[in-house]
Deep mutational scan, measured.
Amino acid sequence: MQFKLIINGKTLKGEITLEAVDAAEAEKKFKQYANDNGIDGEWTYDDATKTFTVTE
């Protein structure tokens, strides 16, 4: 399945997509990506659109 991450950071904004088996795997990958890029914020997930959002 394809999942999307919307980044609303203080210095980094944008979207990325990835393939994952389920939402838990996608969340783990997205949070690792955010951590690697210094993004720390409030996370939400919309199951209907398979979209994660992180807002700093």
Results as ranks from 00 to 15, higher is better:
Val54Thr: 02
Lys28Met: 13
Thr44Met: 13
Gly41Asn: 01
Leu12Glu: 07
Phe3Pro: 00
Gly9Phe: 12
Val21Glu: 14
Gly9Lys: 05
Glu27Trp: 10
Asp22Lys: 03
Thr49Lys: 11
Gly9Ser: 12
Ala26Thr: 01
Thr44Trp: 15
Lys10Tyr: 03
Ile7Arg: 01
Lys13Asn: 15
Val21Met: 13
Glu25Cys: 03
Trp43Glu: 00
Tyr45Met: 02
Asn35Lys: 09
Ala23Ile: 12
Lys28Cys: 04
Ala34His: 01
Ile39Phe: 11
Ala20Asn: 03
Lys4Trp: 14
Leu18Ala: 12
Glu56Ser: 14
Trp43Gln: 01
Thr51Trp: 03
Lys4Ile: 05
Asn35Ala: 12
Ile16Cys: 04
Thr53Ile: 15
Glu56Asn: 10
Gly38Thr: 06
Gly41Ser: 01
Asn8Pro: 03
Ala48Met: 11
Lys10Glu: 05
Tyr33Cys: 03
Ala20Ile: 04
Ala24Thr: 15
Gly38Asn: 10
Glu42Phe: 15
Ile6Ala: 05
Thr53Pro: 00
Leu5Met: 10
Gly9Asn: 15
Ile39His: 03
Ala24Asn: 05
Trp43His: 01
Ile6Gly: 02
Tyr33Leu: 06
Leu12Lys: 13
Ala20Arg: 02
Thr55Met: 05
Asp22Tyr: 12
Ala23Glu: 11
Lys29Asp: 05
Ala26Gly: 03
Gly41His: 02
Phe52Pro: 00
Glu19His: 06
Glu15Pro: 07
Thr11Lys: 05
Lys4Leu: 12
Ala26Val: 03
Leu18Lys: 07
Thr11Ile: 10
Gly14Val: 12
Glu19Asn: 04
Gly14Ile: 09
Ala20Gln: 03
Leu18Thr: 06
Gly14Leu: 14
Thr53Cys: 04
Glu19Leu: 08
Asn8Asp: 04
Lys10Asp: 06
Ile6Asn: 06
Ala34Glu: 01
Met1Pro: 13
Thr53Gly: 06
Gly14Met: 09
Met1Ile: 13
Asp46Ile: 13
Glu15Thr: 10
Thr55His: 08
Leu5Ile: 03
Leu5Val: 03
Gln2His: 13
Leu18Trp: 15
Lys31Trp: 08
Glu15Lys: 07
Ile7Tyr: 07
Ile7Pro: 01
Gly41Ile: 02
Leu12Ile: 12
Thr49Asn: 12
Ala20Thr: 10
Asp36Phe: 10
Trp43Pro: 01
Met1Gln: 13
Ile39Ala: 03
Asp47Lys: 12
Ala23Pro: 13
Tyr45Glu: 01
Glu42Tyr: 11
Thr44Ser: 07
Asp47Arg: 03
Ala34Phe: 04
Asp36Ser: 10
Glu15Asn: 12
Val54Pro: 00
Tyr33His: 07
Thr17Val: 15
Phe3Glu: 00
Gly14Phe: 10
Met1Ala: 07
Ala34Gln: 02
Ile16Asn: 03
Val54Arg: 00
Ile16Glu: 08
Tyr45Val: 02
Glu15Arg: 07
Gln32Gly: 12
Asp46Gln: 11
Lys13Tyr: 04
Asp40Ser: 11
Asn35Arg: 07
Lys28Asp: 06
Asn37His: 08
Gly41Val: 02
Tyr33Pro: 00
Glu56Phe: 12
Glu25Asp: 04
Gly41Leu: 02
Thr51Lys: 04
Trp43Ser: 01
Thr11Gly: 09
Gly38His: 07
Tyr33Ile: 10
Ile39Lys: 01
Ala26Leu: 01
Ala23Cys: 04
Gly14Glu: 05
Thr11Gln: 14
Glu27Ala: 15
Thr55Leu: 13
Asp40Ala: 15
Met1Leu: 13
Thr55Pro: 01
Glu56Cys: 04
Asn8Met: 15
Phe30His: 01
Glu19Asp: 06
Asp36Ile: 11
Glu27Val: 11
Gly38Asp: 04
Thr44Phe: 12
Gln2Glu: 05
Leu5Tyr: 01
Ala20Asp: 08
Ile16Asp: 02
Phe3Ile: 02
Gly14Asn: 04
Met1Glu: 15
Ala26Glu: 00
Glu27Asp: 14
Thr17Gly: 08
Lys29Thr: 08
Glu15His: 15
Gln32Glu: 06
Glu42Arg: 15
Ile6Leu: 11
Leu18Cys: 04
Asp47Gly: 06
Phe52Glu: 00
Gln2Ala: 13
Thr17His: 13
Glu19Cys: 05
Phe30Ser: 03
Glu25Thr: 13
Glu42Thr: 14
Gly38Leu: 13
Asp47Thr: 06
Lys29Ser: 07
Lys28Gly: 06
Leu18His: 10
Glu25Met: 08
Thr51Met: 09
Asn35Trp: 14
Lys50Cys: 03
Met1Asp: 08
Tyr33Arg: 03
Asp47Val: 11
Leu5Gly: 02
Asn35Tyr: 11
Thr49Glu: 07
Thr55Ala: 11
Asp22His: 14
Asp47His: 10
Glu15Leu: 13
Ile6Thr: 07
Glu27Met: 10
Tyr33Thr: 05
Phe30Cys: 03
Ala48Tyr: 14
Asn37Glu: 07
Lys50Arg: 09
Thr49His: 11
Ala26Phe: 00
Ala34Arg: 01
Lys28Arg: 09
Thr44Arg: 12
Gly9Arg: 06
Phe30Glu: 00
Lys4Asp: 08
Tyr45Trp: 10
Asp47Met: 11
Gly14Thr: 10
Thr44Glu: 14
Asp46Thr: 07
Val21Phe: 15
Phe52Leu: 02
Gly9Ile: 07
Ile7Glu: 01
Asp36Met: 13
Val21Lys: 08
Gln2Phe: 13
Gln32Cys: 03
Ala24Gly: 15
Leu12Val: 12
Lys50Met: 07
Leu5Gln: 00
Glu42Cys: 06
Phe3Tyr: 04
Tyr33Gln: 03
Val54Lys: 01
Ala48Gly: 10
Thr49Val: 08
Thr49Phe: 15
Val54Leu: 11
Val54Glu: 00
Phe30Leu: 10
Ala24Tyr: 08
Asp47Tyr: 09
Gly38Lys: 14
Glu42Ile: 09
Phe3Ala: 01
Lys28Thr: 11
Ala26Pro: 00
Leu12Arg: 08
Glu19Gln: 13
Val21Cys: 06
Thr17Ser: 13
Gly14Arg: 15
Lys13Gly: 12
Ile16Gly: 02
Thr44Val: 15
Glu56Ala: 14
